[in-house]
Design a protein around this nucleic acid. Structure first.
Length: 430
DNA sequence: TCTGGGGTCCTAGGACCC
DNA sequence: TCTGGGGTCCTAGGACCC
């Protein structure tokens, strides 16, 4: 379906937290203000957030840490490992603040939300109030873009950031020369256009957002599917995407990590996979879901020394499950079939799919007896309650808790979990 | 025995997002 | 030496059925 949420005279506000992860770190460490700061991905692999000062030094998004390490130490850039406990909690606070301003709101990502604002008489004034309230309640600076479609609101938010005199708010509908704004946006920066499509478009002479707006519909449909066509219509002000204020049901759950160093010992691989399965299963239960299909995989990645090997196995489970030990049993049996001796693996993981609501599930004829099912459910409930009280990993399966493990990911620059852990509250005085 | 057309379901792969 | 992790959607093609 092309039009999922088209509405008459729609207006959308996109609220986007500025350099979100960096801003979170700055809230709890004022010495970071006005200094170049970067935050690294899991495993301290690459740069995923940069302060404006770090951007000015030429550190780009996704740069591997080892490639910019020299630049970083030369300029005294402060470096942080990803602290998702902190960022997730700060995100919840921002969203809670935003919710007071519009009943129709979509949490689009950890640092962005769309708000419907069709009823506002002066949306820019309203957005400025939103902005100052978020800053007051959370300490997080945001930019707000307003337009008649979500895709244009993304562009407006970008303009709000780029134009210093915009004061963090930009209303594309109220802008006299919106065509010029579109002309200033490279097609690769349009929402929905990634690297591959940007290259294809460039070869066809479509360079800016304005070019894409005027592109031939048939050509776009053929080369970029209906999603590309939606993007073009949205650029023309035809709203194809609505505010999805009810979160759609989760389709899959993935848990995987790269190892801190390569692993060839099958026992270590089993430990790691068992832990990722535990994580995925806990998420499954927290949403009251069951999984019917589980995919396990191992890989050496495409680079690095030694033989390369990537393999995945899709397992149809005998009945929908959410019990950690059951899932680990199936997963480890799968791993057994994938593993090759002498190969140094860099990553393993699990994906749970064919998810269904716990209540909707009908027990299969030859599955566990209902009493055994119920025992297992109550057992996992108890485990989850203990882990909620004492911290993740207080009770775990098949792996020893809190032991030092060589395959653990690297997180050498971690800040405190200031808002979610009593023992790591920020100190007013050392 | 050979053959066509059309429908559904599933999977793999490719594209995108943050 | 060293390049994240967790998601979604769309399409093409194969298997299977009538």
């Amino acid at each position: 379906m092309l039009f999922t949420g088209s509405e008459q005279s729609a207006r959308f506000a996109l609220v986007d937290c500025n350099n979100f992860y960096v801003s979170c770190e700055r809230v709890f460490d004022p010495s970071l203000a006005a200094r170049p700061v970067v935050v690294l991905s899991n495993n301290d692999g690459c740069v995923i957030a940069r302060s404006d000062e770090a951007k000015q030094l030429g550190i780009s998004m996704g740069t591997p840490f080892f490639k910019c390490r020299e630049l970083i130490s030369h300029h005294g850039v402060r470096v942080f490992s990803s602290n998702y406990a902190l960022y997730g909690d700060m995100s919840a606070r921002v969203m809670e603040t935003l919710r007071r301003f519009s009943p129709r709101m979509e949490e689009y990502s950890i640092d962005e939300a769309f708000l419907a604002c069709a009823q506002r008489e002066n949306p820019a004034d309203w957005a400025r109030r939103v902005r100052s309230q978020v800053a007051r309640c959370t300490g997080i600076p945001v930019s707000i873009g307003i337009a008649s479609t979500k895709t244009l609101a993304k562009i407006a938010a970008r303009a709000a950031k780029k134009q210093p005199d915009a004061g963090g708010v930009f209303d594309l509908d109220g802008c006299a020369d919106s065509e010029r704004v579109l002309e200033s946006v490279a097609v690769a920066d349009v929402w929905g256009v990634g690297r591959r499509y940007a290259e294809l478009l460039r070869r066809s002479g479509i360079i800016t957002a304005r070019d894409l707006k005027g592109a031939d519909e048939g050509w776009v449909r053929r080369h970029m599917t209906v999603q590309g066509l939606r993007t073009v219509l949205e650029l023309r002000g035809v709203s194809c995407l609505g505010v999805e204020d009810v979160a759609p049901a989760l389709r899959s759950i993935l848990s995987s990590r790269s190892f801190g160093s390569p692993v060839d010992d099958p026992a270590r691989l089993r430990e790691a996979l068992a832990e990722y399965i535990s994580t995925a299963a806990a998420k499954l239960r927290s949403r009251s879901l069951l999984t019917a299909v589980m995919q396990v995989f191992i890989t050496t990645g495409a680079h690095g020394p030694g033989p390369h090997h990537s393999a995945a196995l899709t397992l149809s489970l005998p009945q929908p499950l959410s019990s950690t030990p059951e899932l680990i049993r199936h997963g480890l049996a799968g791993l057994e079939r994938l593993y090759r001796r002498g190969v140094r693996y860099r990553k393993t993981g699990v994906m749970l799919t064919a998810l269904q609501k716990e209540r909707a599930h009908q027990p299969v004829l030859f599955g566990c007896a209902p009493a055994a099912d119920e025992r297992s459910r109550r057992f996992m409930e108890a485990v989850d309650a203990i882990n909620a009280r004492w911290g993740r990993g207080a009770v775990s399966f098949a792996v020893p808790s809190r032991a030092a493990r060589a395959w653990r990911m690297q997180r050498r620059f971690m800040s405190g979990r200031y808002t979610t852990c009593w023992s790591e509250l920020p100190k007013a005085r050392a």
